[in-house]
Amino acid sequence: MLHKIVQKLDQHAHFESVDAHCDIPCGIYDPHHALIGALTVIRMVDLINALVKEHGQGSTAEFINGMARYIAVKEEHAELTKHEIRIIWGDFIKAQHVETYPQLNGLVHKIMQLGSKARQTVDRETALALLEAVNEFAEIFWQIKGIETKRVPAPFPVSEEMVLPVL
């Protein structure tokens, strides 16, 4: 109540602000790279399975080359997803955000675990679970920033849902 009155007064009087600063002025953070990483992991799982289906267990140079490339990209993008989430969690997320979203730390840990499992396996369910966990993280991230989100089918060969900010 008192705060509201002072806030009203502030609109006219413009009280001086005192800064309770942290190290760097507002950084630029976005979970988009993490989502692209997770979608790429799904795509690589699909391509790996399609290649096996096409070539059987064959060990032609073409098969080995294609498989090696798909695996390399899957490894890289699962790691990219983990990296991007770690940065946002470590640099952007503050104690008060965890207080408001108590599931946040558990969700980040889940993404780390799923990211590793996505590297170890060629399991589409794991890749989908990774994407869903990153989507949940993205929703919380944008909520913290006071920006609405929507879920849309990804406009890629993998058309699973991804969370986008409504800007």
Partner: peptide, 17 residues
């Protein structure tokens, strides 16, 4: 005075006076 930033959280929060 109006507090800006989270450096003193939770004692003082953004928007406190």
């Amino acid at each position: 005075l109006k507090v800006r930033g989270a450096s003193l959280w939770p004692d003082y929060r953004e928007g406190d006076y």
